[in-house]
């Protein structure tokens, strides 16, 4: 069992400051569940699939939710969604898009590809903390994930 095995939230975010603020917000509302921060889509997919640097990770341990940014280098958020939805073993992991963009085309396309929810990152910090708290409180404690 490695450090990666009890990860409950996979945070996929290329912006270091946004990642730090999200983690702080989660800590602030005492959601001490394990959060793993993947810096881009490629790392996120390797994490989920237990490949490359994550080959020792237990494949049976899936996060309760993936918080996914859209605009990222190397592999775009939408491509990550497509990849996860294409495989039977990863298709059912809940995905909540968390991105700067509130552009209608991003919202529509994300839902069309099968995300569970879509949250636009607020600029004001109180709203940001509140949004992260609301995400955590629902997806970690209320929602039931498929087996």
């Amino acid at each position: 069992m490695t450090d990666y095995d009890d990860v409950e939230i996979l945070l996929v975010e290329d912006n270091r400051q946004d990642a730090e603020m999200t983690t702080r917000a989660l800590k602030k509302c005492k959601i001490v569940n394990k959060v793993y921060w993947a810096k881009d889509g490629v790392e996120a997919l390797n994490f989920i699939r237990c490949t490359e640097e994550f080959e020792n990770r237990n494949k049976n341990c899936t996060p309760k939710v993936i918080l996914l940014d859209l605009k990222m280098p190397r592999l775009d958020g939408l491509d990550v969604i497509r990849a996860l939805k294409a495989e039977e073993s990863t298709r059912k992991i809940p995905i909540v898009v968390m991105t700067s963009s509130n552009q209608e085309r991003d919202v529509t396309e994300s839902y069309r590809l099968g995300v569970n929810g879509y949250v636009t990152k607020p600029v004001q910090s109180t709203a940001f903390v509140e949004a992260v708290a609301n995400i955590g409180m629902f997806w970690l404690f209320v929602n039931s994930t498929p087996v």
Partner: peptide, 18 residues
């Protein structure tokens, strides 16, 4: 403007509030 400026503004607000 929307995407590229908002992220650093969010960080300045977030980190100074922290």
């Amino acid at each position: 403007v929307s995407h590229d400026l908002r992220a650093p503004v969010r960080a300045v607000i977030g980190f100074s509030r922290a």
